[in-house]
Design a binder for these strands. Structure first.
Lengths: 229, 229
DNA sequence: AGGAAAATCGAATTGTCATTCACTAATTTT
DNA sequence: AAAATTAGTGAATGACAATTCGATTTTCCT
């Protein structure tokens, strides 16, 4: 029986207790996110999640306080991913349109990645109020940042004049909806879908749109299309 | 106590038994649709629906077989509304882009109208299989019709060359997402939202897009914007 | 080694919910 | 006006699910 803490022997190959715990917790969040996205919050029982992890229900309570907190953590992670995409895009710079499109493209990748813990809220009014209001305020802030980008884009000439609020709703619809129809084992990869939707969005925001879009997401990158430029 | 069947006396003012039954059933469908859209299928109990109608749970079983059938009827009605919008647009004629945009605009109006019985499926895998496969096949047919319109539009020059499948997913995201954020008592009316999203969609599909979009949905119609032309 | 803390389990507990049942009142049919 | 049908109710019924509890095993610390 191997007992040592691993750190000294094989570097990080043999994880110590804290690492094991963190890994298990991460697996729980991933399993829960998959189930919630597939069946919805109310349509998923803790027993389902536990079974998918090979443990029993009570075991889950060692990692999260209850089902509500579980969803809260996932919604929080989703919004954190959104902000990360935003910061990354801002750091890369470029026109407001480039930054907006890069944000959404990266966010699509996040929510549809194989090991994502992102849950796009489909059922409303699920979280009770200590949680609910917190999530709503973070979400509103993110949407506000997107609107700001649209308005900057109108100002810097990279985005067609429009109503930023309505346009952001429209964009978020396209983006969030990908989680409904995207399939890991489908025709297109996660990256291809992200690039394809980004190309559509990019063209629709541009004051002087391209004459055509890619005939298929799998060929994006082979031609002039794409986010940049 | 008025006993007569109304038909002879006051025209149709006093409804007869069959009409009363139909009205009650319609009210049930409306109440259920509102609840399902607000809280999701699993988040809504038959008791909730019954209470909103001022009756008790068992009474509902006089009008629908069970909860599954209730959702099925609403999903079916939603798709029926989608096809109606499509047929209406086809009947009005015009370029493929005009017909596509008109379809989606009218569909947005349908799903967000005050007395709508439309439920856009948010939780997947809710209906069991006698129902599920039927809904999926109707939905697929509708999406196929939309893709046909996109391809016709590419052919007749009214729509920018693109991947029709990806574009239709993107459009349906924008359209269906309106049900998440639209509020009856909000700043914009149902018609304004439909026209506003339609304007965005129309521009994004056009090979030669307009130089600007409306600054606010409430001003659509006052300027050159809108669906036609 | 030996006690504390953590992880897990099987078995409650408690609540909710879809659905059914037995019964009553009204209404339609004959 | 009796018989049949329809609406509706309050009280079961039977699942299922979230959470808690007590016991057991494992792991960690010293």
């Amino acid at each position: 029986m191997v007992k040592g803490s691993g750190k000294q022997v094989w570097g990080n190959v043999i994880p110590d207790a804290a690492q094991v715990r963190a890994l298990k917790r991460a697996a729980l969040l991933r399993g829960a996110a998959q189930a919630f996205n597939k069946y919805g919050y109310h349509g998923t029982s803790l027993g389902d999640i536990a079974a998918s992890l090979g443990v029993t229900k009570p075991a889950l309570y060692h990692y999260v306080k209850n089902k509500q907190e579980l969803l809260f953590l996932l919604r929080e992670a989703t919004l954190a991913a959104a902000f990360e995409s935003l910061e990354l895009a801002e750091a890369r710079g470029g026109s407001a349109r480039e930054r907006l499109v890069a944000t959404l493209s990266d966010y699509i990748r996040s929510i549809n990645s194989e090991d994502s813990i992102c849950v796009v809220s489909m059922e409303e009014r699920v979280l009770k109020d200590p949680y609910e209001s917190q999530i709503i305020s973070i979400r509103d802030e993110f949407e506000g940042r997107l609107r700001d980008l649209v308005e900057q884009g109108i100002a810097d000439g990279s985005i067609v004049p429009c109503n930023s609020k309505l346009v952001v709703f429209s964009l978020l619809g396209s983006v969030n909806w990908t989680q409904r129809w995207f399939r890991q084992d489908g025709r297109w990869s996660n990256d291809q879908v992200a690039a394809g939707i980004a190309e559509i969005i990019n063209r629709s925001l541009s004051p002087t749109p391209a004459a055509r879009l890619s005939a298929d997401p799998s060929e994006i990158g082979k031609n002039q299309g794409g986010v940049g430029k």
